[in-house]
Every structure is written in structure tokens, then in C-alpha cells.
Amino acid sequence: MNAAKQAARSAAILRRDAARAMAAPDAMRRIADHFFRSVPLRPDAAIAGYVAIGSEADPAEILARASANGHVCGLPRVAQKAAPLAFLQWAPGDALAGGAHGTREPLANMPEVRPDIVLVPLLAFDRRGRRIGYGGGYYDRTLAKLRGNGGVVAVGIAFAAQAVDELPEEEFDARLDWIVTESGARAFAAAPSGV
């Protein structure tokens, strides 16, 4: 394992825990507001989110609004270790099952969704769109697959305090297109319009 990444990951866990503890009560609403004001979103775009674990910034408000506006939403499922994630259709109120690594996921009989936008959990992000996750590589493999098959927009969901100046990067790491926090939204590259 890359020692620089492991050190960054350990520091990022503590920083994210502190950020969550200090977050204003309306932080998740503000994250959702910034997402819908800033990230280009076609009316028929499918959005993949996640169920927050521990101190992760929670995208539930984004998914609830997206679903209410007619977007198909999905949540990740670890179908196989060391493979890209599958996204299964989900809407607020749908049942969830226990998944790998302590996650919650849609029931296995739900249809698979091909997302246009993937909301990405993270421990830390930097000014160039790099992110540190838990080290399993699931989102890196997933984004590489989706980008190779017609594109996707990766949107990191985080607290502003999770920002760092510089993160280590390896050749297989997939960068974010956007970061959305309670303080605002930022595109890291020329993000495709109207996704």
C-alpha cells in the first residue's frame, strides 16, 4: 500500500470526523442547494448516490429532491470484490439491505441503473480534483469503466473542512469533475454541460 496515501487517509479520517461534528444543522440542505444550482443536470439524467456511513457527508437530500423531480436514482452494490460497483435503482422509502463493508444497498432484485452523475463519498479532496477514499478502489474502477463507456460526471460530496492542498495520486486514481460542500460547488475541469 502506498505509504503517502495511507498517511493522508489516516489524517483525513480525523479531519472528516471533526468536520461532521462541527457541521451546521443545515449543512446537508446547503450541499443539496449548491448541487442543484451548480452541477449541470439534464431532466432525464440518472443519478447514483450512496447511503452515508459514519461521518460521511450525506447525499440523501440530493437524492430525495432528484427523485421528486423525476430523476431515476440508484445506489451502489458491491457485486464482486475488486470489481466496479453496480448501481441498482432506488427511491426514498424503498427497502435497503445490508451490503459489503457495512454499507446499505437496494434489494438485489432491483433493476440496474447506468448513471450520468455519480455522487462520490470521500475522506479528503484537493484543489485539483483528487480524492482519497477508503482504499478499496471501488469508485476508481467504477468511474474508469463508466468514463470508458460514454462518460459520467463524478461529483464529490463533502464538508468544506475536508479540503487539503495536495493529495498523493497513483495512475489508476479517478479524479472528480466537481466537488460540492456546504460552502459551495466547484468544477475541477471543463465538466460536460447538461449531463
Rank of each mutant, 00 (worst) to 15 (best):
M1I: 12
M1Q: 14
R9A: 06
R9Q: 02
A12K: 03
I13Y: 02
I13K: 11
L14G: 10
L14W: 03
R16N: 09
R16Y: 01
A19I: 07
R20C: 15
M22E: 15
A23Y: 00
A27C: 05
R29F: 03
R30M: 11
A32S: 15
D33L: 09
D33N: 01
H34S: 04
S38P: 00
V39D: 04
P40Y: 10
L41W: 09
P43D: 03
D44L: 08
A45C: 13
A45L: 07
G49Q: 03
Y50A: 06
V51K: 06
A52C: 04
P59G: 06
A60D: 13
E61Q: 15
E61W: 06
I62Y: 05
A64K: 14
R65L: 12
A66N: 03
A66K: 04
H71C: 07
H71Q: 11
V72F: 00
C73R: 10
P76N: 03
V78K: 12
V78H: 09
Q80M: 13
Q80I: 00
K81F: 11
K81R: 15
A82N: 15
L88Y: 04
W90Q: 04
P92K: 08
P92M: 04
D94V: 04
D94P: 01
L96D: 12
G98R: 12
G98Y: 00
G99V: 08
A100E: 15
H101E: 07
R104P: 02
P106H: 07
L107W: 07
M110T: 15
M110V: 12
E112V: 14
E112C: 10
R114Y: 00
P115E: 00
P115D: 06
V120K: 02
P121N: 07
L123G: 02
L123A: 13
F125D: 09
F125C: 07
R127Q: 14
G129T: 08
R131E: 07
R131A: 07
Y134L: 14
Y134S: 04
Y134W: 13
G136D: 09
G137P: 09
Y138I: 04
Y138H: 15
D140Q: 05
R141N: 13
R141D: 09
T142D: 03
L146H: 02
L146N: 01
G148L: 01
N149M: 05
G151L: 11
V152D: 02
V153C: 14
V155N: 02
A158I: 12
A160V: 07
A160K: 09
A160G: 09
A163K: 10
P168D: 06
E169N: 02
E170S: 14
F172D: 05
D173L: 05
A174Q: 15
R175E: 08
R175I: 01
L176E: 07
I179F: 08
I179W: 11
V180H: 09
T181H: 06
E182H: 02
E182T: 00
S183F: 00
A185K: 09
R186L: 13
R186C: 03
R186Y: 08
F188P: 03
A189C: 13
A190F: 01
A191W: 12
S193E: 15
G194S: 10
V195F: 02
